[in-house]
Design a protein around this nucleic acid. Structure first.
Length: 836
RNA sequence: GCCCGGGUGGCGAAACUGGUAGACGCAAGGGACUUAAAAUCCCUCAACCUUCGGGUUAUACGGGUUCGACCCCCGUCCUGGGCACCA
């Protein structure tokens, strides 16, 4: 009896239904079993699944299915990052509510994911735009507010005119909006901030815990972003005034070489310093010009260093010398204290500035035994050395001098060791509608009042109409805005800003552990059992944004008492992009390959197989229409192999890597050889699964085994134990391939007469004794070059190997006229004859 | 400037702990089957030389360590990415 043509549509729908009916992938916390939490970054419901999603979720599904077969209790959930701008834009265009567009997209995309056969526990599905979800986020917000980790301040913020909203620093890329690529301007606004800087040190330190589990480059990117600098804060007295200028420096050792001072244009002291001075107008004009310069121009590499003298002086706390105070365009108010002690001899920037404005320079560090002549220098000397011209500190190595000078000044409270970070607090206010409302009320009498827990969630009104101009309808929606103050009961107004959508994605992975709980954000026992995420998988584009925010959020929730762990994601796999013709797929380039079309033509299994085979997961993958044909061809090859065995009565219900007792005793010849290959495949596949999820070589190993079965099947069908070995090998192929191409494997598994479901079967074991070879191919090298290969008994010892090697004609030819100096034997592999 | 990656056939790639470089697949060429096509099966496939035994050169480039190097060390080039007038 034949199986008929391989029809992926029919096979796949059939098995998807069976998995559904048997609730195969639903899991509960079970402390008696080892858990494994595998998670892929959840999608934004933009409308359709694209190839990037297919790659991401196929990788995750193989991990989930593999770990399940390895005996783990596997949590593998899916949900929707459902708030955000595209929904609003679509709603404006289609004159509907963002919710309608979002939920309809979710329904479409869920169906697509189901069609791909991913093994999710769908009962845990979440959509972040649902009040049952964001209600808890609002609660966290209030708790963080009470703890002082949320605050409101009026500050310059990044404003994107295109998106009509504020952006966090992490969302500005080279002066442009991460989403719409529009130019970002600076604006002064009252905004809510999350105090991520309170965790700067821990966020940096804990990166050590992630070494080995996270890609190095992601760790470095986070290190760079946090940007820790160790140094000192030093106070400089302003001459003739009680004011001081506070400076942050990483080079306190160069203090005696500080010959002038540079302030940022926005520095609050500037106005006080110039009051009543003849320079005042000129300085004000300069400050205004610098402050009004747009962000991109001001940050440009080639910006000419410019400054202006304020007329005021401060005093070097060690040398006692006067230092003219300048305002300089390269000093940033946002870093350190907004003031820089200028050491022109040892800082390139200050060097150029001093040369341009003819300011004093003083060498204070020189290489051992050398003197530096400032007038002859063409650049600052920034290398290590020993102190000179620094009074009592002369002769100290500059590294040591750092501590000594701070200590000296600390006696008079003029300096203290300080650490500075580049990381800024996370601005989370968004002037948009489709986001979680910030749960506070502004009362004329009581000020800013948090909404009490029992009044949560603050729901996003369902009757709001999006505005043509893209601005949020919330401020004009009286029914939303007007509210009684929770404290005094008087008339008050609701906050109309919503939260950055990165808030929702900062904790969704925790919510999956008890997604349907409506009395608390998490069920503590489930949360504890499943956390942290063992394997997280997603794109490198979130190396900073989402991954940094999530790390911070987990630490903050830990300090609120919600979670016990400190790092959300134990292991991180950053998958490469899916390219077509060398470029990222995009509508504008017209190089998009639609997953639906591929599933329709070749099926989900072939699509998954190709995308996993074409490239290792971290690398970019070039889509190839011929490649997916090849994947489909391989599945057909397995199908026909099973069919062929069935037709010749050689298809027995023998399990994978069957023991000799099942195979009918000791084997010999091709049967033994195939069994060896079978077990070797188990060994290889298991190793590559464990080692960084190298699915491409996993699949290659299975192709080899199938090729071997094709080569041997006709000889084996009639041989003793042959049918059993063929069947065992086929079982092995189906079992090992099932995480990648689950439907066809289940189907053929059933055809073999097995009653179980592959999805819940244990992973096969490699029997080491099956790997033993009677004969091995011995490679013979002469002076490191291969000169011959011969088959020798695997048991041959060193002397025997030597004998064999010397029988090889070509080897002897290369040894002619030479004496053997040394013989190196790599057991089971090769022998190298060193001769000269 | 600082910090991370990466560089292997026509293409995607593989190579375990330093032990036969190119597994597996794609493309290409040849053959079988077929009235024909598709599908399938078999063979060839790094470059050059060859008396067809084999030889030489090859993992960006130049050195080194080693019996032996894609792999380890030093230097150079190219390339992708992150951070940056950061004090």
């Amino acid at each position: 009896m034949g199986f008929g043509k391989y029809d992926p549509q029919q096979v796949e729908l059939n098995w998807q239904k069976k998995w559904d009916d048997t609730r195969c992938f639903e899991v509960e916390a079970d402390p008696s079993r080892p858990k494994y939490y595998v998670l892929e970054m959840f999608p934004y419901p933009s409308g359709k699944i694209h190839m990037g999603h297919v790659r991401n979720y196929s990788i995750g599904d193989v991990v989930a299915r593999y770990k399940r077969m390895r005996g783990h209790n596997v949590l593998h959930p899916m949900g929707w990052d459902a708030f955000g701008l595209p929904a609003e834009n679509a709603a404006i265009k289609n004159k509907t509510h963002p919710a309608a567009w979002t939920y309809s997209n979710i329904a479409d995309m869920r169906a697509q994911l189901k069609r791909l056969g991913y093994s999710y526990d769908w009962r845990r599905e979440i959509a972040t735009c649902r009040p049952e979800y964001y209600k808890w986020e609002q609660r966290f917000f209030i708790e963080l507010l009470e703890k002082g980790l949320v605050y409101r301040k009026n500050s310059p913020v990044n404003w994107c005119e295109g998106c009509n909203t504020v952006l966090a620093n992490e969302q500005v890329e080279e002066g442009r909006c991460w989403r719409c690529d529009g130019e970002v301007e600076q604006k002064q606004l009252e905004q809510w901030f999350l105090k991520i800087t309170a965790y700067a040190e821990e966020l940096l330190d804990d990166l050590k815990l992630l070494e080995g589990g996270w890609p190095d480059r992601v760790i470095t990117m986070q290190e760079n972003w946090i940007g820790k600098s160790v140094g000192a804060q030093i106070a400089f007295q302003v001459k003739g005034s009680c004011e001081t200028v506070e400076v942050f420096t990483t080079r306190p050792d160069t203090l005696c070489g500080a010959t002038f001072m540079s302030l940022a244009a926005e520095h609050p002291l500037v106005e006080k310093l110039i009051a009543g001075r003849p320079e005042a107008d000129k300085v004000r004009a300069f400050c205004r010009e610098v402050a009004n310069m747009d962000r991109i121009k001001r940050g440009a590499d080639d910006l000419e260093k410019e400054g202006v003298f304020t007329g005021a002086y401060c005093v070097n706390p060690i040398t006692g010398k006067d230092m003219p105070i300048h305002v300089a365009n390269f000093v940033l108010m946002g870093y350190g204290t907004g003031a820089v002690m200028a050491v022109p001899a040892h800082d390139q920037r200050d060097f150029e500035f001093a040369r341009k404005y003819n300011l004093p320079m003083q060498v204070v560090i020189a290489p051992k035994g050398e003197t530096l002549d400032i007038s002859a220098m063409t650049a600052a000397y920034a290398d290590p050395g020993f102190l000179v011209n620094s009074g009592e500190f002369d002769g100290l190595p500059n590294q040591e001098a750092k501590g000594a000078i701070i200590e000296h000044l600390a006696k008079n409270s003029l300096a203290k060791p300080t650490v500075n970070y580049r990381l800024r607090d996370w601005g989370i206010s968004r002037q948009r509608f489709w986001g979680a409302p910030i749960p506070v009320v502004h009362c004329g009498k009581c000020g800013t009042v948090p909404v009490p827990f029992d009044q949560l969630p603050v729901r996003l009104p369902e009757d709001a109409k999006v505005r043509e101009d893209g601005r949020s309808p919330l401020p004009l929606l009286e029914s939303f805005v007007n509210v009684a103050c929770p404290k005094c009961g008087g008339a008050a107004r609701r906050e109309t800003d919503t939260m950055d959508t990165f808030m929702e994605s900062s904790w969704y992975f925790l919510r999956y552990t008890s997604a349907r709980n409506d009395s608390a954000p998490f069920d503590p026992a489930s949360l504890k059992y499943w956390s942290p995420v063992d394997q997280y998988i997603g794109g490198i584009e979130h190396a900073i944004l989402h991954l940094l925010y999530s790390r911070f959020f987990v630490k903050a929730l830990r300090d609120l008492g919600y979670v016990e762990h400190s790092e959300p994601f134990q292991n991180l796999l950053t998958q490469g992009m899916v390219l077509k013709d060398g470029a990222k797929m995009s509508k504008s380039k017209g190089n998009v390959v639609d997953p639906n079309a591929m599933i329709g033509k070749y099926g989900a299994d072939a699509t998954r197989l190709f995308i996993l085979f074409a490239s290792p997961p971290e690398k970019d993958l070039e889509w190839s229409d011929a490649g997916i044909e090849g994947a489909f061809r391989f599945l057909n090859r397995i199908w026909r192999l099973a069919e062929d065995l069935a037709e010749s009565g050689a298809l027995l219900p023998v399990g994978p890597s069957a023991p000799l007792s099942v195979l009918g005793g000791e084997l010999s010849g091709p049967a033994k050889e195939l069994r060896r290959k079978e077990h070797d495949s188990v060994r290889k596949v298991t190793r590559d699964m464990e080692n960084k999820f190298q699915f491409n070589t996993v699949i290659a190993a299975l192709m080899e085994l199938v090729n071997e079965m094709y080569a041997q099947k006709d000889a084996l069908k009639g041989a003793p134990g042959g049918a059993a070995v063929l069947s065992s090998s086929l079982s092995t192929v189906l079992t090992l391939l099932s995480p990648v191409a689950p439907h066809i494997c289940e189907e053929l598994w059933a055809h073999m007469g097995h009653k179980s479901q592959l999805a819940t079967l244990p992973w096969p074991q490699c029997d080491e004794s099956a790997l033993v070879k009677d004969e091995i191919e011995l490679v013979v090298q002469v002076n490191g070059k291969v000169r011959g290969k011969l088959m020798v008994p695997a048991t041959a010892d060193q002397d025997a190997v030597r004998e064999f090697a010397m029988t090889h004609e070509n080897v002897l030819r290369h040894l002619e006229g030479k004496s053997i100096k040394k013989l190196i034997v790599v057991p089971g592999k090769l022998v190298n004859v060193v001769a000269g």
